[in-house]
Design a binder for these strands. Sequence first.
DNA 1: TCCAGAGATGAATCCACCC
DNA 2: GGGGTGGATTCATCTCTGG
Lengths: 398, 398
Amino acid sequence: MILQGDCKLELKKIDNESVDLIYLDPPFFTQKKQSLKTRDNSKEYSFDDTWENISDYKYYIQDRLIECKRVLKKTGNIFLHCDRSASHHLRIALDEVFGIDNFQSEIVWSYKRWSNAKKGLLNSHQIIFFYSKTGNFKFNNIYEGYSATTNIDQIFQKRVRDENGKTKYKNNENGDFELVAEKKGVPLSDVWEIPYLNPKAKERVGYPTQKPIILLERIIEIASNEGDVVLDPFCGSGTTLVAAKLLNRKYIGIDASKDAIQLTKARLENPIKSESQLLQNGKDSYLNQDEEVIEILRQINAVPVQRNKGIDGFLRLNGAMVPIPVKIQKGSETIDEAIRYLIKACQTNNYTKKILLKTHSRQNQLLFELPAQRREEGLIIVEGIEKFHQMEESLLTF
Amino acid sequence: MILQGDCKLELKKIDNESVDLIYLDPPFFTQKKQSLKTRDNSKEYSFDDTWENISDYKYYIQDRLIECKRVLKKTGNIFLHCDRSASHHLRIALDEVFGIDNFQSEIVWSYKRWSNAKKGLLNSHQIIFFYSKTGNFKFNNIYEGYSATTNIDQIFQKRVRDENGKTKYKNNENGDFELVAEKKGVPLSDVWEIPYLNPKAKERVGYPTQKPIILLERIIEIASNEGDVVLDPFCGSGTTLVAAKLLNRKYIGIDASKDAIQLTKARLENPIKSESQLLQNGKDSYLNQDEEVIEILRQINAVPVQRNKGIDGFLRLNGAMVPIPVKIQKGSETIDEAIRYLIKACQTNNYTKKILLKTHSRQNQLLFELPAQRREEGLIIVEGIEKFHQMEESLLTF
DNA sequence: TCCAGAGATGAATCCACCC
DNA sequence: GGGGTGGATTCATCTCTGG
């Protein structure tokens, strides 16, 4: 079900205690108008969310939270996605409406993001508060694997308390240990590292602040079951509803904007979910350099580059990375091959210099001479790390 | 300088605008008395922190924050380490004392922790608020390496705006790109993954809520310079002061407890910092299993175990891990060697069963027969994955 | 001195194309 | 066709300028 209008009014159409899970991503407390055009410039979505002051904003949210509480079942849960500038006020509103005792978690959604020139730390997380309606709330535990540093042997051992009341692992009269029957794994943490929705992702529909489907899926999975009713009173582009549909939950979405409603309906008919390489393979799958190369790069104080066969790193000058690419000749490469890879990788970027660090020479390469054409292209061959350090100053001019 | 007493009074002894950096880890808002004994039970540190209600607590903190603001230089910074149950109230106190505009960051300190049986998400982060006294605050940018997925070639390119005002990378008449001079790296994020101080770390002095030195070092590095004055009005075991000393900052510590002051003084004379393997080598260094083994474990639905030469995993029954260790015979191991490793790894834990999955047999092992003694010890040799699946039901009884 | 709006920023990561 | 890599796109941005 999708409703258009202010959720304060629209929520009144929903029965008492009929919803299992609510996710809200309310407008932020900003003092300026936000807008963003879609990629093809066909549409402009904007928020005209200006409140006089923070307490107006708090009341605005609180009013709607009260309605949310009414429609929520006794076993229901609510997740409030917060704005960094007002999260503390929102939590106070939640405390007042749902009660301090029903606070369950402060979830940190952490991600990597393109940076900006801001003075200070790069802002790369958002907060989601998780409250329940009562102490008897639905929750599906998800377990993850143990950390590689965990001594898994030990956690199977039963424990006892010593004379001071501290627990220790128990061993029986033979010095052996007694075992517990089973371990389920590590419960899901409240810090979630989920990649930010990439600017180029197909999943993107051109709506500002669009959330990754996988974030909503996780919330829906832990806090509701199949067939349950999921409500999003500020549904925007409809990510929550798409996730709910994919997980076989019923859904109710509300938004004040006609455009948003239209977009949501279209998305529900054809839900697209990005298949993130990063999520599927893990970030380690991108690391393709062997330790030897990393070590040489460290010795010449270069920044390592992954994801590129022709360039292994860039040089550093006064701590900053400068556009002078370096390739380290691999054990399996002849000098000719190494040159070819490096030149190819540089062909569209006209670096004034490119450096090949020779690490070995085979019999048939002793007489190798660098062709004039290559020298013109700025290719410099350095014979080993020691030589590199001798030449370093001249190499770093460009 | 180290002062004993309530910091509200002791702070009055400090001159106006004389401190560069303040870090506070105030007592938490709990309704019960906290206490913890040292490892050898020789001493008991306790907090008698009970406030009637949250607003009493807020005023208690706010009073002290006002004094903090007075002693802080105009270029100074303050970091407030929060308790999860009161962080929102503390931030409101900070807003009131330092001003909303001087809010710089909400830092998330995230760590792995012993799990508990709590229903819901495992609570594994703490919040530190970072406020400055004015807009002109000290800040040392720290840059980190680029993500492995970043296209480093590209970020060296200059850009222009297209007709719609969107930026794109610029190429000149030849189709080549123009380059920017240098890149510094990725600014430090506001989510810090720092291992929790291990209960057995040398660094531990037996004081409750002790923080890792490295956490304090990072704060001190980004927000002050050498020779600056660092103040901790609730210095506890003195971690802040130790970190300040190690980084050549001057320090002032205040604590109400005589024991805490004594401990701090002792620590300052002989600062010990854990050399965490985890921190130095990164968590990937613990992953010592090759992909082949991981793949076999996946096929037999076992939980992989790192950090152990004799046990590669534990079996799973109905999704939960059970205490039946498995070893996968490696390509380089004879069956005898594999048995020896497995038995050795199991010697202190009397697992009723231990399983060796044979993956290959060499000529001289075709006639191998399991000695009776080994069978008594519960060792079962399974010849390959297919065989494992045939026997699975019987293997999983114990 | 303050505020609004223009202009500069900068790396993450998915997509699409190319061997 | 499948792995590799060049390219596109983003900002509930951030900073700076000018009135």
